[in-house]
Measured scan of single mutants.
Amino acid sequence: MASQGTKRSYEQMETDGERQNATEIRASVGKMIDGIGRFYIQMCTELKLSDYEGRLIQNSLTIERMVLSAFDERRNKYLEEHPSAGKDPKKTGGPIYKRVDRKWMRELVLYDKEEIRRIWRQANNGDDATAGLTHMMIWHSNLNDTTYQRTRALVRTGMDPRMCSLMQGSTLPRRSGAAGAAVKGVGTMVMELIRMIKRGINDRNFWRGENGRKTRSAYERMCNILKGKFQTAAQRAMMDQVRESRNPGNAEIEDLIFLARSALILRGSVAHKSCLPACVYGPAVASGYDFEKEGYSLVGIDPFKLLQNSQVYSLIRPNENPAHKSQLVWMACNSAAFEDLRVLSFIRGTKVSPRGKLSTRGVQIASNENMDAMESSTLELRSRYWAIRTRSGGNTNQQRASAGQISVQPAFSVQRNLPFDKPTIMAAFTGNTEGRTSDMRAEIIRMMEGAKPEEMSFQGRGVFELSDERAANPIVPSFDMSNEGSYFFGDNAEEYDN
């Protein structure tokens, strides 16, 4: 993207840094990872977990959730003011799984939030270390993106479920800051804005008074975040219109849905970061690795190297396929839920299948599930090659597409044709070009129609051997075009429920 120079890199967003050079960025990201790792080690000690239990991804998720809940100030305040039966607002906890007599047992633990905050700050040299908290939120978000298709949420806001490739980060909490905003897809931002506008339509006082002023500035800020994701002048001009509207209503909703559809071809720039579970960072720190000293990046080879040398386990339900569970977590670790499966298959070195073909449910185990038949197995999170994460949407291309997802959002900077089903997408653009945004709409449609099938995206960008740390010898991959490109292809993934 041309304006790259004016933006802070995501590592800076990730670490609240002012302008830093590459070495400083690597050190501050490393410091953040160190903090998460030290916190995780301490929690495993508190909970008396064995090494194996500490490497269980379900335990990692519970521990991450506990610290996120302990620092969720708004919710904590709300819980104190609106006490609900049987919930102690000062405590947080969740299921911890232990191996007892050759069987997995679930144990519900409860801790004072104050105590968890103390352990977290102690692991982070006394700081609140917001960057580390956001990092864990993005890992949870990436896992949700890989596990669930947001059909219901899309339909509720009037969008087409086939636009799911635009929904990265749709389950990120509001408090995820600049680093969170960077990884949100165009569809996620559109959905947040539509929800806001709908509230304004239904509630006369939404934009009024002292609160209304705050609401208005939040609305304009979200519009600017979305505008910054678009790469064409016409899309940005249309966002200006939406932002400046005196009284946002149905016309703005129409414009936003139009823009979301246009992003299936004229893709937005959305950041991709490899955020790993805390149970990967903990053992690495415990083994003596100093992330701050060595430096770390979320968008280069580092996460690949770390996963190459990590042992992570997962509980497996009786009829689940461990290899499929591994694929789910591998995609989440690489922030690749909406990437082209052919690119992923090449990088991973084994075939990556669409969601609907995987015999696996989510990673988390519900409290009512029976533990008797639970097994555990090693997650295979290694890769054959590594590639640089991208934040450009890439230019655009036609490809055989599917009944489910009709476009992709690249996660890796790797040369390819970008699949999208042009006739299906263009069919949504018939007729409606009147109104105050008509010239911009016409211009956007013209650009979409001009998108050429034979153009290559990320020209000359390749993948790298894991021994090639400096990215000196790019390998331009070859793809098996007979395979499906979309992950949520004609899909039956479970729906995400809060």
Rank of each mutant, 00 (worst) to 15 (best):
A2I: 00
Q4G: 02
S28G: 14
G30S: 10
I36M: 15
I41E: 13
Q42P: 12
C44E: 13
E53I: 05
N59G: 15
D72F: 10
E81Y: 11
S84L: 12
A85F: 06
K91C: 11
G94W: 06
Y97P: 03
V100K: 06
R106C: 10
L108H: 11
E114H: 07
I119P: 05
I119M: 13
A123C: 14
A131W: 04
I138N: 06
N142I: 05
T151P: 04
T157E: 00
T157Q: 09
M159C: 09
P161D: 02
C164F: 00
L166P: 02
M167N: 10
S170R: 09
T171G: 10
T171I: 07
L172D: 00
R174F: 02
I194R: 11
G200E: 12
G200I: 08
N205W: 09
R213H: 01
A218D: 06
R221Y: 07
M222C: 13
K227Q: 13
K229H: 12
F230S: 00
Q231C: 07
A234R: 05
Q235E: 05
R236I: 01
A237P: 02
Q241D: 01
Q241E: 10
V242Y: 09
V242P: 03
I257T: 08
F258N: 04
S262F: 05
R267M: 03
A271G: 15
H272A: 04
C275N: 13
V280S: 02
A284H: 13
S287C: 09
G295A: 04
L298H: 06
K305W: 12
Q311K: 13
S314T: 13
W330T: 01
A336D: 13
E339I: 02
D340Y: 09
F346V: 11
K351I: 01
S353K: 10
L358F: 09
N368R: 08
R384M: 05
W386D: 02
W386G: 08
R389Y: 06
G393H: 04
G394F: 04
N395K: 12
N395C: 11
Q405T: 08
F412M: 12
L418I: 13
L418Q: 09
D421S: 14
A427Y: 01
A427C: 14
N432E: 00
R436C: 03
M448Y: 02
E449M: 08
E449P: 13
E454V: 15
Q459G: 15
V463G: 09
L466H: 15
V476D: 00
Y487Q: 07
Y487A: 03
D491Y: 13
Y496I: 11
